[in-house]
Amino acid sequence: MNKWPRIMELIVAFGLIVFKVALLIAILLLLPLPLTWLERKIAGHMQQRMGPMRVGWHGLLQPVADGIKLLTKEDHIPAEADRFLFKLAPILALAPPFVVFVAIPFGETISVRGTEITLYLSNMNVALLFVFAVIGIEVFGVIFGGWAANSKYAVLGSLRTCAQMISYEIPMGFAVIGVVMLAQSMSLLDIVRAQTDVWNIVYQPVGFFVFFVAGLAEAQRIPFDLAEAEGDLGAGFHTEYSGIRFAFFMVSEYVIVLLVSVLLVILFFGGWNGILVPMPPLLWFLLKVAFFVYLFIWFRFTFPRYRYDQLMAIGWKVLLPLSMANIIITGVLLGAAAAP
């Protein structure tokens, strides 16, 4: 009759999962608020101005105001739109980045009142593939959104975004292969563990470069934010969206920025492994992520936007060959290292 303890155990495990998920969703949903504020502030200071100042101390409550505005704004659907797809698209765009975080480890374990709690939801052996697979779904949100609106700017924007995302997905995928070769695993946990001594950035500078640039493009950040180039496309695929549905796209974009930063840290910068300064691993991790997030914001106000054909050329003609060469050379070097 030791059935009951087993079931209790399962319930506890499940409860833990639900708790972690809820926490993750909460954090990820709220994070865009400070991030938008930060972005505008940084932009302001870089451009010798103050940024938002009115709502709250130094405009701290500005994002909250924005949120309320989006929540209460009229939700308008164009007359000729495919209503079902139009409504589906924002959710389809919102969900994938959140789901990806299931596979992301933030550290090994922490101890809460004597119980070891893992700092990740799931340690998949194919985590990396999972990440790419789920991120791939993001494209559908974009393309459905643009398509369903039945507006020229939206269609063009969605096609462009789609093309851009799939173009950069390839070098991104290739860039990671070097990392997998080193770690001999697709589990992100294993990949981080493999970097205990030396971070991958040392062995894989090219891979990092490719991943970083591709990541910028995947996140649709300047200099690659062609999709919503206000100058020529209105607002790209979400031209026709307003209100809360538009907010979903926004949130999704910020979560992706966060995600790319997290991945960069895990894949190339040793994850929670620290150097020199002893600090809790989680702190190390968050600091590194913060650095990359800042980098992304910084770039936004530093670089001009590329032309669309330049964007494609960079993806296909520079990054892809680079990443392929990276794989071949990594293989050779690995072989040379393994040889007696």
Partner: peptide
């Protein structure tokens, strides 16, 4: 156990999104 969280997460996100939409529809 590895993929259960995925399911939970999907459910969670959809739930949250739905709730937000619902709240918004009351307000807007």
């Amino acid at each position: 156990m590895e993929f259960l969280p995925v399911l939970v997460m999907v459910a969670g996100v959809v739930l949250v999104a739905g709730a937000t939409l619902f709240v918004s529809s009351l307000l807007r």
